[in-house]
């Protein structure tokens, strides 16, 4: 294996692990679906009848993607694509909320009512994660 391929492999692996860790850090959404439903609702982006299905489904999608990223290498590219799309959607949702002036916590990594409200820092953090997912997908092609 050439040195470049080793580096790409390392990028692919590290990016996958970091993204999986970020996804798993939102495990509270699996434990407290009603709190997450409130967070989804507070974005005011989905029609009411889709709020609960989204709040039930998204945490499981994230968990399954995290498991694929960590333990099922064959499914890693597919999981990376899903994570990338999710991150883009979440970032757009946060951006819209910020433009509208909504000041609630996003409910991404915690359920506490004293969670800091959304800010442009959330956008920057998500942009970093999007870049990481893109790096991983590009690195995968080079391996």
């Amino acid at each position: 294996m050439t040195r470049d391929r080793k580096i790409y492999r390392l990028i692919y692996w590290i990016a996958s692990v970091v993204l999986a860790a970020v996804l798993l850090s939102g495990f509270h959404k699996l434990l407290y679906p009603s709190d997450f439903a409130v967070s989804v609702y507070r974005f005011h982006l989905l029609p009411g009848f889709l709020v609960n299905p989204a709040a039930i489904y998204l945490p499981w999608l994230e968990a399954v993607c995290a498991v694929c990223l960590l333990f099922i290498p064959r499914f890693r590219p597919a999981a990376l694509w899903i994570v990338l799309v999710l991150l883009v959607l979440f970032t757009a949702a946060i951006g819209i909320s910020l433009i509208r002036g909504t000041a609630f916590g996003c409910g991404c990594f915690g359920r506490a009512a004293d969670e800091d409200p959304l800010s442009w820092i959330n956008i920057i953090r998500n942009a970093g994660l999007i870049a990481l997912a893109v790096f991983a997908l590009v690195a995968r092609k080079k391996i």
């Binding site: 945490p59 499981w60 999608l61 399954v64 694929c68 999981a79």
Partner: peptide
């Protein structure tokens, strides 16, 4: 498959 398995687990 990932979308389906996630849906199944969610239900």
């Amino acid at each position: 498959l990932i979308l389906f398995v996630s849906g199944f687990l969610a239900v």
